[in-house]
Simulated assay, not measured.
Amino acid sequence: MILAEKILVYLEPLFILIVLLAFSRGRYWKQLRATKAYFIFHFASTCVLSFLLTLPKLVRISEMHIDYTYFYAYWGTYLISAVLIFFVLREIYGELMKPLPEIRRLGMLAFRWIMVISGVIGFVIAFSSVLISSHSFASMLIYLSQLCVRSVSILELCLLAFIALTIRNLGRSFRSPLFGLALGFGIDAASEFVMTAIGQLRNAQIWSAPEFILQILTTCVLVTWITYFLLPERQEEREIAIIPVQSPLIRWNDVAQALGHSTPRVAMGASSGFFLQDVERVVDRVLARNSQLDAANSGTKAG
């Protein structure tokens, strides 16, 4: 089992290189810049970590120096990868929601606030670790990396669930490379949660059964990406996505557009109604307008 795990670990850079080459063949190579940066960084960091594992066999160096170097290289790339994945998820969402600019705007705003709040939390943790002498830099790095990865993993699962539920209404199919990206990140996040819990219960080492299973799942994610990037896209997905008229997302986009308009300022006074009444009136107007359009379309078809 240890031999099989080592083979998968050393083959991982090759799989990532194939993913990178397959991704460069598609039209998203120039559009998804954060995804491209993530794959390049993932390939470079995996090569460095694999090289550090084989370095003691090439040169005479103390095991302590190798352990220290590998420790900081692993957790440093772990943290940077979590930050890059966040921008990849934001990019995937933005690309999928292009036909619905108002919903897209609200979603991108939510991503921005998540980034700001996460940055503040990370700064507070780092600053408090510096003040408390009992916390070493290594323990702070591990805690901060795990916190970021778990937060991003939740976003990965939420994005996958959202895309799986709305992919048809967005004018896409499950063969879309965007869905393939979200699927791969979702599998990676789920396996990370499960295997981390198992590893903590059994106090797993680097060459152990939980790590071997995690490496198998990582390889499955890479194979999934390779398959999606090599599959030919449907002709209709190469063009601008057309959302079906009956899609409820169009109505919600109208609601978001209506809510996004600034209202004129008035003098402050006693409120005569609940503030959600304004929102309800906007929704009623949008739904009434869409009902009239549906009735007009039905009349046209009947005629």
Rank of each mutant, 00 (worst) to 15 (best):
S271D: 11
I125H: 09
L214V: 01
T196P: 00
L131Y: 09
L178K: 07
L147C: 02
Q235E: 15
F193L: 08
Q31P: 01
L217M: 14
S139T: 12
R150V: 12
V149C: 01
V88K: 02
S145K: 06
T46E: 13
M115K: 03
K57I: 00
K98D: 00
F86S: 03
F162T: 12
I198Q: 03
L84G: 01
C158K: 09
Y78E: 08
S271Q: 11
Y74V: 01
I80R: 03
A126H: 08
I198N: 01
G273N: 09
G199F: 04
A241C: 02
L214P: 00
G199V: 04
L231Y: 10
S45I: 09
F86Q: 05
S208Y: 04
L55S: 04
V286E: 14
I242H: 14
R281S: 10
H65K: 07
A267N: 06
F41Y: 15
P244Q: 10
V116A: 09
N297M: 12
G186V: 11
A44N: 01
V283I: 15
F41V: 06
W75C: 01
G119D: 06
P248D: 05
L249W: 10
T263R: 15
Q200A: 14
E5G: 05
A73M: 14
Y10L: 14
R25P: 00
F71S: 13
V9T: 08
T77C: 10
C148P: 00
A256K: 05
C158T: 15
L58E: 08
L144W: 09
R234N: 14
H135F: 15
L55T: 04
L144I: 12
F212N: 08
R27A: 09
L58A: 07
I80V: 15
A295M: 12
V282L: 12
L181A: 06
T219W: 11
V194L: 14
L178C: 06
G107L: 03
G260W: 05
S173K: 09
Q235S: 14
L8Q: 07
L293K: 15
R90T: 03
A34F: 13
E95V: 04
F43N: 05
A37R: 12
F39E: 01
D67R: 11
M140Q: 12
L21Q: 09
L170P: 14
Y38E: 02
G122D: 02
T46W: 10
L53R: 15
I242N: 10
Q292Y: 07
S298C: 03
A164T: 13
V9G: 01
N290W: 11
F179M: 13
L141T: 07
Y143W: 06
T166S: 11
A197G: 13
I132H: 06
I216Y: 06
G180P: 11
V59H: 02
S139W: 09
Q292S: 13
P177V: 03
D67H: 08
